[in-house]
Design a protein around this nucleic acid. Structure first.
Length: 273
DNA sequence: TAAATCCTGTCA
DNA sequence: TGACAGGATTTA
């Protein structure tokens, strides 16, 4: 579900409200969420710890504990992390509860059960999926020349490259399509074959689309809400994603849907070459 | 490079 | 009823 702008929005909505709170109890209703760890072991580690802040790496949401340990959430397709008043819940897909001081619970809800949680001890090496992440596309070190390096020599289509978290961290299916439309690049173009001006447009589109989407607090197509349960607004700004047969906002030609790298892909056959 | 897999919900 | 869904890993 959530891509970089959505995870960033959740982080911003939760961070000020979680800061300084103590975890009183942990309740796990879906053990497989824990990626190998026993529910009792997680509770042992967390109870009594004070929350020091939140961070984001790619699509991972990091809950930072005052002692230096961290909890990494990956929400995958349908995960939500929300802070709300404590109390018994029979909500069908609420699978993890952090009971906090201040009378609120941090609750993880995930109908499709794809999400995962990793406990990261202070100073410990990151587990493979986090360790292997590519650069942050909004970070200072993500430069046009770094993008050129990442794409150089790749014969595969550009869209799956944008989706590969080991190459660039945080772009998902919605924003890959939006970025390629803004850049005027066909999703099946070989990644290593872009001309210099196309590379520059792609770079600007990556930073521009992601930054704009954050300012609109993410895209809510179905499940996504921020840490307070509020949907985002960027769905109203989407140029191509989910708009098959509707007119391109730039040229009026109908948007097409194809499959690229196994993912539904929306693009304008006139604007994107 | 593609398909299967993990899951449930929604929509045509 | 079948197709599809904002993700990622494993297998062929």
């Amino acid at each position: 579900m959530p891509e970089l702008p959505e995870v960033e929005t959740i982080k911003r909505s939760l961070a000020p409200r979680l800061l300084g709170r103590t975890i009183l109890a942990v309740e796990v209703r879906l053990p497989k969420l824990l990626a190998g760890m026993e529910p009792a072991a997680l509770a042992r580690r967390l109870v009594g710890q004070v929350i020091g802040g939140m961070d984001r790496r790619g699509k991972y949401l990091l809950l930072e504990l005052a002692a230096g340990d961290r909890v990494a959430f990956h929400l995958r397709m349908s995960g939500r992390l929300v802070l709300r008043a404590a109390g018994p819940t029979e909500e069908p897909h609420a699978y993890l509860f952090f009971h906090l001081t201040g009378g609120e619970d941090l609750v993880y809800v995930d109908p499709r059960k794809f999400g995962r949680l990793y406990y990261l001890s202070a100073g410990e090496k990151l587990p493979p999926p986090l360790f292997a992440l590519g650069p942050e596309p909004l970070g200072a070190d993500f430069t046009p020349s770094l993008l050129a390096e990442i794409l150089a020599g790749r014969r595969g289509a550009i869209k799956p490259v944008l989706l590969d978290q080991r190459l660039i961290a945080g772009i998902g299916n919605i924003y890959a399509d939006e970025i390629l439309h803004r850049a005027g690049i066909h999703p099946r173009r070989p990644a290593g074959g872009l001309k210099e001006d196309e590379l520059r447009r792609l770079y600007d589109a990556i930073r521009g689309v992601l930054t704009e989407a954050i300012s609109y607090r993410g895209t809510s197509k179905r499940d996504y809400v921020d840490g307070e349960g509020r949907p985002g607004d960027y769905q109203e700004r989407l140029a191509v994603y989910g708009r098959a047969d509707e007119p391109c906002r730039v040229c009026g030609h109908p948007i097409r849907r194809i499959v690229v790298g196994g993912r539904g892909t929306y693009f304008c056959p006139v604007c994107q070459v």
